[in-house]
Amino acid sequence: MNALMPYLLNAVFVPALVAGVFALIVAVGPLRRKPALLEAGLASAFCLAFTLSFAREVDAWGLVRNFFAIEGESAPIERWHRIGLAALLLMGASALIAFARFAAGQWWARAITIASALIVSIFVGVFVVFPGATMWTQLAQSALVLACIATVSTCTRIAVLWIACLVFACLAPLAVLGGFASLAVMCAATCSGALIIATVVSAGARWTRDAAPLDSVGALAVAIGTMIALVTSCGIAYDTAAIPLWAWLTAAMIPLGGCAFLSRANAASTRTRATLWVVLGSTVLALALLGAMLLRETATPPAREPTSGDPMDGIFGRAE
């Protein structure tokens, strides 16, 4: 299909490339020496990939339609549009968190990270309400945000971006199976964005003298963890194919896979090797999840429409 390539280019690759260029500004060159700017820039770039893809997939007005009626616009207000707005707000919030962390000093930095994770989780629980939501689902959504931020925080340095790429690479096919093509496209854009950002950051570390190290515990963990939780919750809420809950949650918890090889990562002689071990653990978990879903898809026989047991139904219709 000829139309598919321009579509993928616009909705997946362009947002990822723009995020990559945004990351390039802070990850390569003199700005790379400023750790606060690096963290803020990368976290914002990550959210930017999702936001741009959302704007391309829905339309830019979709970001504000939740609050303002747009004249001449007949598109309905849909609850899932809030994930785009949440990603946009998260861009600013993650930059704020990064600057606050580095301005406050080492001890307070940890407290700021924990406080910001709590605030973001409460915000997501209150602001992003999907269909069929109850108080318990909103609490679970907030808890998922905290859990995702915590699991992402277990990833060391650059591994956080590679693993974010893996998570969204798993969420995309789940969204496709769940009947939500747009979410899959946004996941693909975020996955590609994380891949480009990770590549840029790796290159920047080699090309820039006195490059500031990347701290995965901070704004980056809050941004990536929140986006993972948001997309997972959204996928579950709009799933039309009854994808098992464990599949969604496993995808969200892929960063934990890195813990399997944590001892090897700690014992590794170089940072690159340590990163490789952590990413390998998550890759194994991601492949296991995709394999399980593939098996489930091939093993499930096609269901048939149930037929009425009353033979009169077919002739005369409903008998009162």
């Binding site: 609850r79 899932w80 069929g132 769940g178 009947g179 939500f180 709009y238 039309t240 194919a241």
Partner: peptide, 19 residues
């Protein structure tokens, strides 16, 4: 086609969860 039915019920088309 079940997969297609799921897509049509999803947010890209009829958005059955909300409408």
């Amino acid at each position: 086609n079940e997969r297609l039915d799921g897509n049509l019920q999803g947010p890209n088309f009829f958005n059955q969860a909300e409408f």
